[in-house]
């Protein structure tokens, strides 16, 4: 059975979006605390960090790669940025430091995968440990506390009636979308992930573009690290543990394929928000956090199964 809407869009394709809407409406009915400004702002703030990381992960996964080290990179970027702030640097400079620090490790991941020709799963499993280790060594395991109060605006501020992070997220999402759909870099990312041999034979500088994609992913993760630090008002060397799996899950729920060549920004945003709503809704409904984990796990498998079935039928 293949349901097709006018305009040739198959219904299965809209399934993630439909699920998000259903989840949203369902929670609005089930609990009066859901549809409040405070709660929705909190969902956006909680999801923003994963969302921004997941945007970078989308590009990496489209290019046929994966980055398991983003949780560690997030902590490293946050730590470097807050250390700059502690030294009295302006906030803009601090955020820039966080982004560049993240970009550096993304660049390293790309370089190691393309130069050593080692599976990115292994490379980033390695850097996951290396970057976390370095972060802990640099900070001596202690969080950075001495940060100007105004830094909290990044993660907690409000602009035009919505959380400031929502604007950051939107800007990043639009930028990544444009990059993926309308630039050489993005189209090459698709080509490389789709068939690396074809990309090579077409004369595409495969290594250069692969490294670029990882570096952009790292930069976005560094930015996410600064947002996380702003929300906690500390540079936590232990921040971001396990975030890599949430970022990957968001991409995959949104239709990204770990075999490369497939994925969209909109899909990833939906994926991240589905997970965010699931966890927020469970909290509001008093479902135990233990069960929450199991639910989210089941949703990942369900989403990918539905997507696979759609592709097989297509």
């Amino acid at each position: 059975m293949k349901l097709t809407l006018p305009g040739g869009i198959s219904l299965q394709r809209l399934l993630p979006f439909a699920s998000l809407i259903i989840l949203f409406v369902g929670l609005s009915i089930a609990t009066p605390n859901f549809l409040t400004e405070t709660n929705l702002s909190s969902v956006i703030r909680q999801t923003a960090v994963i969302n921004i990381m997941a945007l970078g992960m989308t590009m990496i996964i489209i290019a046929g790669g994966i980055d398991l080290s983003v949780g560690s990179i997030l902590a490293f970027g946050g730590l470097m940025g807050t250390m700059a702030l502690e030294k009295g640097q302006p906030i803009v400079v601090g955020v820039a430091v966080g982004i560049v620090a993240g970009m550096f490790w993304g660049f390293m991941n790309g370089l190691l995968t393309t130069r050593l020709k080692i599976n990115p799963f292994i490379v980033t499993l390695g850097t996951l440990g290396i970057v976390r280790g370095i972060t802990l060594i640099v900070s001596n395991g202690l969080p950075v506390h001495n940060i100007p109060q105004s830094f909290s605006y990044l993660g907690e501020g409000i602009l035009g009636g919505v959380p400031f992070v929502l604007w950051i997220l939107l800007v990043c999402a639009v930028a990544v979308h444009v990059l993926l759909e309308h630039t050489k870099l993005g189209r090459y990312a698709f080509a490389i992930g789709s068939n690396p041999d074809a990309a090579y034979y077409a004369g595409i500088p495969v290594a250069f573009h692969t490294v670029s994609v990882y570096a952009i992913g790292g930069a976005l993760t560094g930015l996410a690290g600064m947002i996380e630090a702003s929300r906690l008002m500390t540079g936590q060397p232990t921040a971001g543990q396990g975030y890599e799996l949430q970022a990957i899950a968001a991409v995959v729920i949104g239709g990204g394929s770990l075999r490369g060549g497939e994925g969209t920004v909109v899909g990833t945003l939906i994926g991240a928000f589905i997970m965010g709503l699931l966890s927020n809704g469970s909290d509001l409904l008093g479902i135990s956090p233990y069960l929450q984990q199991a639910i989210i796990g089941a949703v990942i498998i369900l989403a990918v199964t539905v997507d696979e079935l759609r592709k097989r039928r297509a």
């Binding site: 630039t183 080509a191 068939n195 074809a198 990309a199 060549g261």
Partner: peptide, 24 residues
């Protein structure tokens, strides 16, 4: 030797995009 996820048009001109911006 084609990229299966890309369109016919993109595959025909793959690797020969002239500028950074791709006008699909």
């Amino acid at each position: 030797l084609l990229a299966p996820h890309l369109s016919v048009a993109e595959n025909i001109f793959l690797g020969r995009e002239e500028s950074f911006w791709v006008k699909r």
